[in-house]
Design a protein around this nucleic acid. Structure first.
Length: 727
DNA sequence: GGCAAGTCTATTTTT
DNA sequence: TAGACTTGCC
């Protein structure tokens, strides 16, 4: 077969990375530096050049999206069957190994994965059962405790508590382990730990994989936690050919256990040479990169790199300082309209990024009011929807009737006359006799058995019936037989739910299991580990709204970073420690490096928070950007300047009026039948279009300070002036 | 099971 | 303050 040339089109650093062969290597890949290209080209190149089987390379990522992207690119480069490849998230790879060796791992064949919500509800139940006060011993804390211990490869019996509190936690951790084992449940962290233990305790299995994987590639290495790091160490062995790609400047998940320190440790533990730097950026303009570099430069603990680009651009970063969050949103929507209508920018090329989910609401409102299509990411995942979870719970019970979590979720849904009391009794006898809930029915007094037995028999019938059905048929069957369809059909707002149920059946039509005899188990695992949502909206023409966290790895022509206020971004809770502040700064770095061409930074001078209107100082991160990179356009609609070029935005703050403190000032006024808000556009018969800057009320007298385009500021008496709302 | 009243909580959350 | 979520009651 003719060899393909994968290497042309790589820059010299990328080439070095792709063709590195002796031992392990850490690649520091800056934002937009062609990280995925390097990873995928390397895989294709290794396979072709060293005649490796496609199963002899292991590539691990953090998201399914990244894994799918890699699979797609590599398989099209090599014309190979992607199912033979070991490319996946840490969790899915661990799952694959556990399925293959479930007995050695001490699991039942049909073990099920539970997500963090289910983990929490299980933990809650255990705390209740031990009669501990939930306020004093919050389930959340125990959940964190358990996950933390697991991330450090510590089982309950390896812990020695030093106070009463940890004594309870350790005790409950042990019970939690016991319950999960009994019911065949595996939480997210358990997947990794179980797999780690499987490899640690079984030399044969470990050696098999060590031998199989000639090369291991890791994406987003800065996000690995302790356990993932140890797992990699174990799996790679002494020969250690781990190719780790990461960017310490984009480490934004330390709050859930990611250790940036793993990057530094890597060089020593994996005897890797100095890291290779990919600093040429192919995404953003010079201006955007200069700002990003200037910001991240304020962080102390960096491995250190500087992004550069051969692109030039005179387009400055635009800063808009709105009066309120309404004003902020109004401006963004205005600007989007103009970008779309006048400059022909596609809506899907525009993103609004914010620090916290709650900020999306105002933008949604404004976008909706003005008829612009938008999509908010990070809402409820498809598989997290209540109706879908119920269907999945039935499926889980079919596979494993001892799955108590699933049992509780549907035993009385739709209602079958099994009330809280009956369930409580069931839990009690199950606990007393150390059996699962299905089995517990035998220990109940004869007269309270009836309905529960009926339910158990329903599951039994289902188990029999689905034997001859394929996956879509099975799901369809379960939706009908369980009574779920009927229930939602009779519910007054059930249409959406019915639609989702139908979609579930459609969605599974294309599901391809690795091993056809395990379709159901594989599908259930897939439903926990993967969300459907992301792929769905690829071609939709709509503005993209998401948190900065969710935006990592993505890029857009135009990016609006909103809510740039100290206290919001950086967030209040992060201002107390240097480490947290530096993580916020990396988050800011991630935010602005998403932009390819145009970057807008926004803030509101005052914001409704905690039920109060608070004045909000400009984010310190904006102050870290050299003034000459920024064009402050806050004044443009208000003061009428067409050019503020060269002005430092620092001179443009609106603290002179003190209007936030002014007792008579208002954010909103009702004038006859219209409600006027600061930031609203109005039109006046004589002065034309204008924007409301301030609103005052003194007794019955109401006045508004309005900036009229081409005229300037006017203070008008609202009882006299004829104002109409305008857009 | 459904509704009303009460309580809690406002940071991010790849799996 | 608002909303999501829980609890309590019929």
């Amino acid at each position: 077969m003719q060899k393909k040339d994968f290497l042309s089109g790589l820059n010299s650093e990328q080439l070095k990375a792709v063709t590195h062969i002796d031992g392990s290597l850490l690649v520091l890949a800056g934002a937009g530096s062609g990280k995925t290209k390097v990873l995928t080209t390397r895989m294709a190149w290794l396979i072709q050049n060293y005649q490796l089987g496609i199963g002899e390379i292991l590539a691990v990522t953090f998201t399914n999206k990244a894994a799918n992207e890699m699979l797609y690119r590599v398989s099209s480069m090599l014309n190979a069957d992607s199912r033979m490849m070991w490319v996946g998230t840490f969790h899915s790879i661990a799952l694959r190994m556990l399925r293959a060796h479930y007995e050695e791992a001490g699991l039942i064949k049909n073990f099920q994965i539970i997500d963090s919500n289910e983990q929490q509800s299980l933990i809650k139940r255990l705390i209740k059962q031990r009669n501990l006060d939930e306020d004093k011993y919050p389930p959340r804390e125990l959940q964190n405790f358990i996950n933390y211990q697991k991330e450090h490869a510590l089982r309950a019996n390896q812990l020695s508590p030093d106070n009463l509190r940890t004594k309870y936690w350790v005790e409950l951790y042990a019970i939690y382990e016991e319950v999960c084992n009994r019911d065949g449940l595996v939480d997210f962290t358990e997947l990794l730990l179980r797999c780690y233990e499987l490899l640690s305790f079984h030399d044969g299995i470990l050696n098999r994989y060590r031998h199989q994987f000639k090369h291991i590639l890791v994406d987003e290495f800065q996000d690995t936690n302790q356990l993932q790091y140890k797992w990699l160490q174990l799996l790679s062995g002494i020969k250690s050919t781990v190719f780790a790609v990461g960017d310490d400047d984009q480490s934004i998940y330390s709050f859930r256990g990611a250790k940036v320190g793993n990057m530094r440790a890597f060089m020593q533990d994996f005897t890797a040479p100095e890291p290779l730097l990919l600093e040429q950026n192919y995404r953003s303009t010079q201006t955007i990169l200069a700002a990003a570099n200037a910001i991240i430069d304020n962080n102390g603990d960096r491995i250190g790199k500087n992004l550069w680009t051969s692109q030039k651009s005179n387009d400055k970063i635009r800063l808009y300082e709105g009066y309120t969050e309404e004003d902020e949103a109004y401006f963004v929507v205005d600007e989007i309209k103009s970008l779309h209508n006048n400059d022909g920018v596609e809506l899907s090329d525009i993103a609004i990024l914010y620090r916290s989910n709650a900020q999306s609401r105002v933008f949604e409102q404004h976008l909706y009011n003005r008829g612009i299509a938008y999509k908010v990411y990070g809402g409820l995942r498809f598989f997290d929807r209540m109706e879908i979870k119920r269907v999945l719970a039935y499926l889980r019970l079919i596979l494993n009737p001892n799955d108590n979590e699933a049992y509780l979720r549907v035993v009385n849904f739709p209602a079958r006359g099994i009330g809280a009391k009956s369930i409580e009794n069931l839990l009690l006898v199950a606990d007393e006799n150390s059996v699962s809930f299905v089995e517990a029915v035998n220990f109940l007094p004869e007269k309270s058995k009836k309905n529960i037995l009926k339910f158990n028999n329903l599951i039994k019938t289902m188990q029999e019936d689905i034997k001859v059905l394929n996956l879509p048929e099975t799901i369809s069957y379960v939706i009908e037989t369980s009574g779920l369809r009927e229930f939602f059909e009779n519910e007054k707002d059930g249409e959406d739910r019915i639609e989702n149920l139908n979609e579930l059946v459609t969605a599974v039509t294309g599901f391809l299991p690795e091993n056809p005899s395990d379709v159901l188990a594989e599908f259930l695992a897939h439903s926990v580990l993967e969300s459907l949502d992301h792929q769905a909206a690829k071609n939709e023409q709509s503005i993209q709204l998401m948190t900065v966290h969710a935006a990592k790895g993505l890029e857009f022509k135009v990016v609006f970073v909103v809510g740039l206020e100290d206290g919001l971004f950086p967030h209040d809770n992060s201002l107390n420690s240097q480490n947290n502040l530096e993580e916020e700064r990396r988050l800011m770095y991630v935010a602005i490096t998403r932009a390819k061409e145009k970057l807008y930074l926004l803030r509101a001078c005052s914001r409704l928070l905690w039920g109060k209107r608070l004045s909000a100082p400009l984010s310190r991160f904006v102050n870290e950007i050299p003034a000459e990179l920024i064009l402050n356009i806050s004044g443009m609609s208000q003061i009428g300047y067409s050019q503020l070029d060269g002005h430092s935005y620092k001179d443009e703050q609106y603290d002179d009026t003190g209007w936030v403190e002014n007792k008579t000032s208002r954010v909103e006024l009702k004038n006859s039948d219209v409600t006027l808000k600061i930031g609203d556009m109005v039109s006046h018969a004589k002065f034309g279009r204008g924007k409301i800057l301030k609103l005052f009320a003194e007794g019955k007298k109401m006045t508004a300070e309005i900036f009229f385009i081409g005229i300037g500021k006017k203070v008008l008496d609202l009882n006299i002036a004829q104002l109409e709302k305008a857009y």
